[in-house]
Nucleic acid binder design. Sequence first.
RNA 1: AGGGAUAUAGCUCAAUUGGUAGAGCGCCAAGCUUUGGCCUUGGAGGUUUCAGGUUCGAAUCCUGAUAUCCCUGCCA
Length: 565
Amino acid sequence: MKKSNDSANEENSKEEPIHFIKNIIEKDIAENKNDGKVVTRFPPEPNGYLHIGHAKSIFLNFTLAEEYGGTFHLRFDDTNPEKEDTEYVEAIKRDIKWLGCDWGENQFFASDYFEKLYEYAVTLIKKGKAYVCSLNAEQIREYRGSLTEPGKNSPYRDRSVEENLELFQKMRDGEFAEGEHILRAKIDMASPNLNMRDPALYRIRKVHHHRTGDKWCIYPMYDYAHCTSDAIEGITHSICTLEFENHRPLYDWCLDEIGTECHPQQIEFAKLNLTHVIMGKRHMTRMVNDKIVDGWDDPRMPTIAAMRRRGFTARAIRNLCERVGVAKRENTIEMALLDYFVREDLNSIAPRVMGVLKPLKLVITNYPEDKEELLDAPNHPTDESYGTRQVPFSKVLYIEQDDFMENPPKKYFRMTVGREVRLRYGYYVTCTDVVKDDNGEILEVHCTYDPETKGGSSADNRKVKATIHWVSAKHALEAEVRLYEHLFAVENPSKGEIEENLNPNSLTVTSGYLEPSVKDAKAEDKYQFERVGYFCVDKDSSADKLVFNRTITLKDSWAKVKKKK
RNA sequence: AGGGAUAUAGCUCAAUUGGUAGAGCGCCAAGCUUUGGCCUUGGAGGUUUCAGGUUCGAAUCCUGAUAUCCCUGCCA
């Protein structure tokens, strides 16, 4: 366990890491900007499940508000009814709650502001800063110009305020077909920033909205709805990802021209990427629809729901997000770092049990045929509050196939003929011989035990090199065990070739023998199967059939030694 | 007439604002251990993208290159 006797030093090391957004906020507070208040928000579009990249943004916004005595809002950015659904709203809320970020009363929807946004648009029209354009989509694209060439003005750009007002009202009233007109900002068709070339503010969509129903047939665009929603909520720091950097001038333009009292500051940071996964929503949706994975919460997915099901903890995810920091540099985090935080947290909280995944029968020849004992075993190696349990012991056990070798290499110090090893919490046993079938396959291993070593230690203090785990065959529970590896075999799966880069071993379904103490385990219960890994009860588990997910293996330095040879 | 952003260890980030670069993970060792886990200690690993310049002194300031990412939805 980690210990430090230098309290000052420990205090320092516990401080939250500083980063450029905190610097901005601290400067703002020092200058009493926004009356020294901090209001942040997480603004998901309810059109898919949240992934670990979103988690970083959620933690960032939540902890910033928490740390500076501010407020954290959850606002659904539901301005595109074609893609959005309440199913996603519920899933998103569930995930954010699980992460431990409480938005309290501050749950909002951009769709709550549609009326206000409409009024703002009228304001812009009256100021001559917005106009109804009747070009079709293709024409608008042509008029926009290109990256290297300026665009040209729409022929409808100089419509009168009165005409614009009337047309916009009619758009709202449903008098036009989709695509017939849009409302555009009047900015600068020659701007080098394409977002400023008279961007669309409203489009006609005769679609049912999951919250407003059929009340509206015009819907605001992101650039217009996001800044105004932020302003309405009194957001002080509107944090988003790098790809919105080019949108910031438009964010500011809208609020300046509308003249909102509140003008939040948009700040961009680099989103989190992870090796061995694909996080793009489109691609994840495809993997779900094409049954490459078994749903959004397939434990191999990088979604919050999947990680939860897999057995990762919110704390591990949070520690990762804090550790990787906040910066503007594009980055891809090694999965090994996530693994580290998952192991770190699980090591401290997961009760220990014994389970054998690849069973090999071990017969203790000098142990009485019908004898059974209950052996005391601590549930946690360092935290006594976890208590102890009793594990049944008998003449015939299962041990792990990997824990016996007939012809062991150097440095292998588990069981082999003639060697004494310890059965965890049990006895010292010495292997005497091996029983094989006609093909030479090992069927069972025989050994003798030393009755004087009960509990796993000897009076003469003699050393054994190895301790191996076991399960009493007679008492063992059989369970389905799902073993997971990276979904993709390569670090950076190229997005076009999902199938080609899949890891064929990403899921192995097997069975295992577990000690009886896990009989009543419930979904999401987490254990360490000693010496094997961390496991979590799956939601598919039932009293009749236990199902465990392998969250992650233990670090295995023997595997490294073996590999080097 | 293109614009915006970013470059420091394998990965992710620091560097008190001009005083010869540090941390976590990863990697390699050793110690400890009733988990080959945990824990402890040590080590390797840097032309700070490059080239000039200013300065006693540059990751930091100046000039100029280069590389990578983002932007031409009536998506967000």
